[in-house]
């Protein structure tokens, strides 16, 4: 039976519940991301953005609700984690490059170990993804020899080498100064232009406004307001109004 793949969302959360002990962090969160869409998760510190993102790649187990990612039922205990994580790329705030490996080895490791790719082919791939993030010349450097912005771009390249269907970013520029931030954001813009499906937690409101197809504003574990990027300039709830009003909306 032929199915139209574009009709299925790449990521969908329905009524997701998650508590850490007595603390209810996600309280009925629902949203969906279509193929090629860029979704920005915004909200105050502690509102549950990172937790929601981590649930998508099953770094957190949900207590209730349904999460479907590229056809994987992530909420089920029997989900095939390794298959899920081949379809999903995740990049963290703290880069987490492997310090004992060169940038090339960081990138080729997973394609070779997980997908059984031949070394020569993986090396070509490493060159390709590094070119995508503008770091070809750092192929043989070690992570500590790179600036923060370069490390973050290398981490993005490492993730891209697995050819994920969706990329998750958790405040990937928060540890960087403005100049390095903009070099990383350029890479993300290019990815968006190439049609990559992305979910990003970000505090860069100006950037979110420019790139996101949809904004999800989280407040106290709930999706408090959602809509196109224009909701950032004309919010309807007082909470989002206050959030974008408190200097969060940089140009």
């Amino acid at each position: 039976m032929q199915q139209n793949p574009s009709s299925e969302p790449i990521v969908s959360l329905r009524d997701v519940q998650k508590s850490f002990g007595p603390l209810r962090v996600l309280d009925g969160v629902s949203f969906a991301v279509q193929r090629g869409e860029v979704l920005a998760l915004i909200g105050r510190s502690g509102s549950g953005k990172s937790t929601a993102l981590r649930c998508i790649d099953r770094f957190e187990k949900v207590d209730g609700g349904e999460i479907v990612v590229c056809g994987h039922r992530v909420d089920r205990p029997d989900v095939d984690l390794r298959a899920l994580r081949q379809d999903v790329g995740i990049v963290f705030q703290s880069y987490n490059l492997f310090p004992h490996l060169t940038i090339e080895q960081n990138i080729t490791l997973a394609p070779c170990a997980v997908k059984g790719m031949a070394t020569a082919q993986a090396r070509d791939l490493a060159r390709k993804v590094l070119a995508q993030v503008g770091l070809e010349e750092k192929l043989h450097a070690y992570p500590e020899q790179l600036s923060g912005g370069q490390q973050q771009r290398a981490a993005i390249a490492r993730s891209l080498a697995m050819q994920p269907k969706v990329m998750l970013f958790d405040e990937i520029t928060s540890a960087l100064d403005p100049e390095l931030t903009s070099e990383v954001l350029k890479v993300i813009e290019q990815l968006a232009a190439d049609g990559m499906t992305m979910v990003m937690v970000t505090h860069e409101m100006g950037f979110a406004k420019g790139i996101a197809d949809r904004i999800v504003f989280m407040h106290r574990g709930k999706v408090h307001e959602t809509g196109p990027a224009s909701i950032l300039t004309s919010p309807t709830t007082p909470e989002l109004t206050q959030f974008v009003g408190t200097g969060n909306l940089k140009s």
Partner: peptide, 16 residues
């Protein structure tokens, strides 16, 4: 811990 999470995110197995 972040090193291990990054590796898990790349679909590496526990042994790998």
């Amino acid at each position: 811990r972040g090193q291990i999470e990054a590796a898990e995110g790349l679909a590496l197995s526990r042994l790998q």
